[in-house]
Amino acid sequence: MENGFRHTAIVGAGLVGCGWAVTFALAGSTVTLYDERAEARQNLPERLRGMLDDLEKAGLANHTAEAFSRMRVCETLAQALDGADYVQESVFERVEVKATVSKDIGALIGPQTIVGSSSSGIPASAFTQEVPKRERFLIAHPVNPPHLAPVVELVPAPWTAPDVVLTVRHALAAMGKVPVEVRREIEGFILNRLQGALLNEAWALYEEGYASIEDIDATVSHGLGLRWAFMGPFETIDLNAPGGVADYAERLAPLYHSIALSRTEPRGWSADLIRRVTEERRQSLPLEKIPERSAWRDRRLAALVAHLRAQDRADRN
């Protein structure tokens, strides 16, 4: 067993849930999946098999037939949870939806079962306050798609038992994931607060006419994103000045402070702005082509992950 969870239950089997299922199955877990949508349950085996095949073709997984044999689609939530020592909830991102399913899960699990939520930014305290065994719940937010991107944000609620965070962190690390612990709750956690800062500035720059969507995207994909594929913002600036981070701050901190002050009253994304961005994006990518482009993204991401893993191995040797 490559991780500490013998039996993992996946509740909510959309893109994120399926990514989690593949991840745990490849790590040696028995995986049961439940989705309230009958159509989704019917299509799951073919979808999971395809995801495993893609990983094997990219050189990111072996023994995928064995992993597939460890996954089972269940017709009821109770069936999926029966015997599970870990549950990954990945239902719709709404407080009321997560509160309802968390209550159902809490009523069915054993006293030692841990429940992680894939919530992208809603803290666990917002939907587990009235949940049975709430001390066993926490946020385990992956980067999408979770079977390719290794980072997982772990965010406890105020009532989450400390050993729960530690157990999940150790288990995910043993699977090759990169768990990041958020020490206390904050809306959006770390990833989406960082992403949100970039997104808000991108929308503002476009709205104010400074650049096209294509050129803003190119600035990230062919500039910032190249470095960010293997280092974070603090290491980036530490390497960008001869004297390290202190030297960088002396040179550029006033500029960044001035930029921050220019956005002291940020505007929301207006309906008109969203319409304009949508129209420009649809000119570049028709709506019906999004699944095809998403598959292209996943292939490129898989190739990048394979390259980074090879580089990490080389660095260790």
Rank of each mutant, 00 (worst) to 15 (best):
P156G: 09
Y34R: 01
I190Q: 02
T8N: 09
V168I: 13
R227F: 14
R49I: 02
A253R: 14
A314Y: 02
V91Y: 08
G268E: 08
L138H: 10
C74S: 13
P123C: 05
G209V: 04
F127K: 00
L224H: 04
M175S: 04
D163G: 12
E153L: 06
G244Y: 03
T128S: 15
A9K: 07
V220I: 15
P150C: 11
S29H: 03
T278A: 14
D272I: 12
A218W: 13
I290M: 07
Y86A: 09
L138D: 07
V101K: 00
W159D: 07
W20N: 03
S118D: 05
A65R: 09
R309C: 02
F5W: 06
A249L: 14
V115M: 10
R41P: 01
V164S: 06
S125F: 04
A149C: 15
Y256Q: 05
L199R: 00
E279L: 14
S294V: 10
N240I: 02
M231I: 15
G209K: 09
C74R: 05
L55C: 03
Q195N: 06
S221I: 04
V277H: 06
D238F: 11
G243I: 06
Q79Y: 11
Q79S: 13
P45H: 05
L33P: 02
A58P: 03
F189E: 03
A241F: 06
L301Y: 05
G121R: 05
K133C: 03
V143Q: 12
N200P: 02
S117H: 13
L15N: 08
